[in-house]
């Protein structure tokens, strides 16, 4: 392992913070624009060119609002939850390779690190639901836990399939191993399962069980306002970025691509996947909690297991 010095950490953290904020501004704008156009509306048009700065204006509004905690809330948990949800992002962004050389910090187990940190998001949601002393919040929080049980195992199995193909847990090496053929073509089934899993992981419609507006008001963030709410918001969009970046590395050949420079290819692929997730959200209705669990245990799990076994056998032969 390369030695870590303070300057390196500070610079990468600053870069990541910039990246996270820029990404949130862009993706929220893209989301609202797409939603509008899919419903024959314009979407935001007023702030900046075609509303590109709308998210910034909304952010300023949220920061200026008061954070109100319910009187019976567990204040420590209530305040902690959004932090627990957001902070792991900054670490999870570290091992993501934007090109062969541009990455904040390389570890041999980058893939495991990112996936493990992704779990903390669910912890944040559970804490928020538990801490806010609200039945909708609590239901949202427990749903998030039920959801994580249903998708984490198939997710890990597909990840393992890719790991035995590439022979490494390092994100950089996985991306490098796909110089010729992308894993999306080698492992189409794993790719599809992974796409479903990242929608589940980022808590987005059609699997936004934890916030399900039509059933739970706003689920785990019912009681949140102001800055704390915007931290959950930021966390959601940042996890989307991390999940899409992971998918790009594992299935879409990372930064490999003709003509354009490597980081541009990487960003393009990530934003294609983000657009795909937005597209899902504005097309599919939310599934019921039992349907989601059924899909996780009865469809994703067996198929990913079979896919993993077949891959392992073929590689061993």
């Amino acid at each position: 392992m390369k030695d870590i010095n303070l300057l390196h950490i500070v610079i990468s953290l600053l870069g990541i913070m910039g990246m996270v904020s820029l990404n949130a501004v862009l993706v929220v704008w893209l989301e609202r624009k797409t939603a509008g156009r899919m419903q024959f509306r314009h979407g935001p048009m007023e702030v900046g060119f075609h509303g590109i700065l709308q998210t910034l204006a909304d952010g300023i509004k949220l920061v200026s609002k008061q954070l109100v905690a319910p009187s019976h809330a567990d204040t420590a948990l209530f305040i902690m939850a959004p932090v627990v949800s957001l902070v792991p992002i900054f670490v999870a962004m570290m091992p993501i390779p934007f090109s062969a050389t541009i990455l904040a910090h390389e570890t041999d187990t980058g893939l495991l690190l990112v996936i493990a940190l992704g779990l903390l998001n669910t912890l944040g949601i559970l804490l928020a639901g538990w801490g806010s002393d609200n039945k909708y919040g609590l239901l949202g929080g427990t749903r998030a836990v039920g959801q994580i049980l249903a998708y984490k195992i198939p997710l890990l199995l597909t990840v393992l399939t890719i790991v035995i193909l590439a022979g490494s847990f390092s994100l950089r090496e996985i991306a490098m191993s796909q110089n010729g053929l992308w894993n999306a073509f080698m492992q189409p089934v794993a790719f599809l399962i992974y796409i479903v899993c990242i929608v589940l992981e980022t808590n987005r419609s059609p699997f936004d069980m934890a916030e399900a507006e039509s059933e739970l008001v706003a689920g785990f963030h019912t009681e949140y306002s102001g800055m704390a709410f915007s931290m959950f918001f930021l966390a959601e969009y940042s996890y989307m970025f991390v999940a899409a970046a992971l998918a790009t590395v594992m299935f879409l050949g990372g930064w490999h691509g003709p003509i354009l420079p490597a980081p541009i290819w990487f960003i393009l692929k990530v934003y294609f996947l983000l657009f795909l997730m937005i597209w899902f959200r504005w097309t599919f209705p939310r599934v019921r909690i039992d349907q989601m669990l059924m899909m996780g245990w009865k469809v994703l799990l067996p198929i990913s297991l079979i896919n993993f076994l077949i891959t392992a056998v073929v590689l061993a032969l």
Binding site: T34, F40, H42, W279, T283, F284
Partner: peptide, 28 residues
């Protein structure tokens, strides 16, 4: 069931992308 479900999801996505690329109906 899985194949049929996937097919219907793709059909839905086709509808929304078409809507996205067509003209907006609201005015500013």
């Amino acid at each position: 069931e899985i194949v049929r479900g996937t097919g219907s999801l793709l059909a839905g996505m086709k509808v929304t992308i078409k809507a996205m690329l067509s003209r907006t109906q609201t005015v500013q």
